[in-house]
Amino acid sequence: MPTTKPVSDALATDRIGTTAMVDEGMQIVKAQLASAAVLPQTIWETQFAVTAEILAFMGRRMQAQAELCARLGRCKEIGQAVDVQQDFAKGVSGAYADEAERLSTLARRNMDAWTGVGAEYVSGWTGNQKAAA
Score class of each variant (00 low, 15 high):
78 I>N: 02
115 T>E: 07
110 N>S: 15
71 R>D: 13
114 W>D: 14
67 E>S: 04
98 D>Y: 00
59 G>A: 07
68 L>H: 10
91 G>M: 11
112 D>W: 05
79 G>T: 01
80 Q>V: 00
84 V>A: 08
48 F>E: 11
108 R>Q: 10
84 V>S: 15
83 D>P: 13
49 A>I: 13
87 D>N: 08
115 T>S: 12
83 D>N: 15
62 M>E: 15
65 Q>Y: 14
57 F>C: 03
99 E>H: 15
99 E>T: 03
52 A>N: 14
67 E>D: 13
112 D>I: 00
94 G>V: 06
68 L>A: 07
68 L>Y: 12
91 G>S: 13
74 R>C: 02
105 T>F: 08
76 K>E: 11
54 I>C: 00
116 G>S: 10
59 G>E: 09
95 A>E: 10
116 G>E: 08
97 A>R: 09
94 G>C: 07
84 V>Y: 05
110 N>Y: 15
85 Q>K: 13
64 A>L: 01
52 A>R: 15
75 C>H: 07
109 R>I: 10
93 S>A: 01
51 T>N: 04
60 R>H: 10
98 D>G: 14
111 M>G: 12
48 F>I: 06
90 K>C: 07
96 Y>G: 00
81 A>P: 01
91 G>T: 13
68 L>W: 05
56 A>N: 08
96 Y>H: 03
73 G>F: 05
64 A>S: 09
57 F>Q: 08
64 A>D: 02
61 R>W: 05
64 A>W: 00
91 G>K: 14
87 D>F: 11
63 Q>I: 02
99 E>R: 15
95 A>D: 12
116 G>M: 10
84 V>H: 05
53 E>A: 07
93 S>W: 02
81 A>Y: 03
47 Q>M: 10
70 A>L: 11
80 Q>M: 07
80 Q>Y: 01
71 R>K: 14
79 G>W: 03
77 E>K: 09
53 E>N: 05
85 Q>H: 13
47 Q>Y: 15
82 V>W: 01
88 F>G: 08
88 F>K: 06
104 S>I: 00
83 D>S: 07
95 A>P: 15
116 G>I: 06
104 S>M: 15
55 L>W: 08
111 M>A: 14
91 G>A: 12
107 A>R: 10
90 K>W: 00
89 A>N: 09
48 F>Y: 10
111 M>Q: 14
96 Y>L: 15
103 L>P: 00
102 R>F: 03
80 Q>D: 05
62 M>V: 07
87 D>I: 11
51 T>C: 06
109 R>G: 06
49 A>Y: 04
91 G>D: 12
81 A>N: 02
82 V>C: 03
